[in-house]
Computed example of a mutant assay.
Amino acid sequence: MIILGLDPSLSSTGWGLIRAEGNRLSHIANGQLKTATTEPLPARLSHLATQLEALLADRPADAAAVEEVFVNKNAQSTLKLAQARGVVLMIAARAGLDPTEYAARLVKKAVVGTGAAEKVQVHAMVQLLLPGAAIAGPDAADALAIAITHAHHLASARRGG
């Protein structure tokens, strides 16, 4: 099964594709979908949608997993993140995927073992779990962690627990 993990952001949405075969995980690809901060919000959302559509056309997946929105201290940032996340969910659904959503703390716990893990710890564990993967940046590492979390949850569900 090919799983697409997505870490939504208006400036840099991370994505990561892994193959899950039983308990074996392997890296396929990862990257970042960027938008220009100089562009107006509607144009940025449209550009994000176009990039994700192109990614899904080029690299189809069997499943998708997306990080849930966390609330920032800055309400404007939270709203922009939520809008980018809405685009990501919509494009994934249009591609026939039913994205599963995971809280950031759950992803950290699944990959590192603690929900309070730092980004650098998540990146290190992703690198350990997917040896040889050249990770495009922190957003891509988070996206791969989300895909790994989904793979673990699917494997656990198959085992009945």
Rank of each mutant, 00 (worst) to 15 (best):
Q76T: 14
T78N: 07
A75R: 08
G22N: 10
A116T: 15
L144Q: 09
K73M: 12
L154K: 12
P99E: 05
A104V: 14
V71L: 14
S9I: 10
F70C: 09
N30G: 09
G115A: 11
D139S: 07
A43Q: 15
V107K: 08
A20Y: 06
R159E: 09
N72F: 15
P131A: 04
A65W: 05
A104C: 04
P60T: 01
V122M: 06
A141C: 06
A63E: 13
K109A: 14
R158E: 15
P99K: 03
K109R: 15
L10T: 05
A117M: 07
V122G: 02
N23S: 12
H123E: 13
A116E: 14
N74T: 07
N30H: 13
A151Q: 08
P138L: 12
D7R: 09
L128E: 01
I91C: 03
A104Q: 03
A64E: 01
K108E: 05
L56N: 01
T37P: 03
Q76C: 00
A157E: 13
A64L: 01
T114F: 10
T35G: 09
D58Y: 00
G137V: 12
I91E: 08
F70L: 12
M125P: 06
S26K: 08
V111Y: 05
I146F: 03
P42E: 10
G22V: 08
E67D: 07
A117C: 08
V66N: 02
A64I: 01
A110M: 12
T100R: 13
A133M: 11
M125I: 05
E118D: 14
G137E: 11
S156Q: 11
G115W: 10
A145I: 08
Q32G: 12
K119G: 05
A84T: 06
N72V: 00
A75Q: 06
A136I: 05
E39Y: 05
A57Q: 14
Q32A: 15
G137T: 12
A145S: 10
A136F: 09
S12C: 14
G5K: 07
G161H: 11
G5S: 03
D62E: 11
E67A: 05
M1Q: 09
G132M: 08
L45M: 06
E67G: 12
K109M: 13
L52R: 01
L52Q: 10
R158A: 15
A95C: 02
S46Y: 10
Q121E: 15
A110N: 15
L130N: 10
V112E: 03
P8L: 07
N23W: 03
D139E: 11
T50M: 11
V111E: 05
G5E: 07
H27N: 03
G31Y: 10
V71I: 15
P131W: 03
D142T: 09
A75T: 11
V120L: 05
